[in-house]
Amino acid sequence: NKFNKELQWATWEIFNLPNLNEEQVKAFIDSLRDDPSQSANLLAEAKKLNDAQA
């Protein structure tokens, strides 16, 4: 299933962003679980936040 692979990839990527704190990671993962179809958008937002906090 396409969404499942995207969800797994986005989850792994978010867990490995070095500049997000635990609460931010949890919030993004919760959002992914709530709406897996938004995984690409949520990953992009997480990466933006990660870069901003570098």
Rank of each mutant, 00 (worst) to 15 (best):
K48D: 06
A44M: 14
L32V: 05
V25W: 03
R33W: 15
L17I: 01
Q8F: 12
A52P: 03
N21H: 07
A52W: 10
S39T: 13
L20H: 00
K5V: 07
P36T: 04
F3W: 06
E22N: 11
D34K: 10
V25H: 04
N50Y: 01
S31M: 14
P36M: 06
L42Q: 03
V25N: 01
A44W: 12
N41P: 15
K2W: 15
P18Q: 10
A54N: 11
E23W: 12
A44G: 06
E6W: 15
N21F: 08
F28N: 00
K47D: 01
N16V: 04
K5H: 08
K26L: 10
E6H: 07
Q8Y: 14
K47V: 08
L17M: 13
L43P: 00
S37D: 06
E13W: 15
A52Q: 10
K47T: 05
A46H: 00
N16A: 12
S37K: 07
A27R: 14
K26R: 10
N41D: 07
S31I: 12
L49Q: 05
D34T: 11
A40L: 14
S37E: 07
E6V: 09
Q38R: 08
S31E: 07
N16Q: 14
T11S: 07
N21W: 08
Q38P: 01
A10I: 14
L17V: 00
F3V: 12
L43W: 03
D35W: 06
L43I: 12
P18L: 09
E6A: 05
S37N: 06
L43N: 01
A52H: 09
K5Y: 07
P36K: 02
D35Q: 10
L32S: 02
W12Q: 10
A54T: 12
Q38F: 04
N16T: 09
S39D: 02
N50R: 01
A10H: 05
W12Y: 09
L49S: 03
V25P: 00
K47A: 05
L20V: 01
E6K: 04
W9L: 12
Q24E: 03
I14N: 01
E6Q: 06
W12N: 04
K26W: 15
N41V: 11
S37G: 08
P18D: 05
N41W: 14
E45I: 14
E45D: 06
N21T: 13
F28Y: 07
T11K: 08
K26H: 09
T11F: 14
N19P: 00
D30Y: 13
L20K: 00
F15D: 04
A44N: 08
S37Q: 08
W12L: 06
W9A: 13
Q24L: 03
A27F: 15
L42A: 04
E13I: 15
A27S: 13
K26P: 00
P36F: 06
D51E: 12
P18V: 07
L32G: 01
Q24M: 03
A10M: 06
L7H: 04
I29V: 07
T11V: 12
E45R: 11
L43G: 01
L7V: 12
K5Q: 15
K5T: 13
P18W: 08
D30M: 15
V25F: 03
Q8M: 13
Q38G: 07
T11A: 08
Q38T: 05
L7Y: 07
W12I: 05
N4Y: 13
I29H: 03
L42R: 06
Q24I: 03
I14Q: 02
E45A: 14
R33T: 13
L49A: 04
E45N: 09
A52E: 11
E22Y: 13
L20Y: 00
K2S: 15
S37T: 12
E6Y: 13
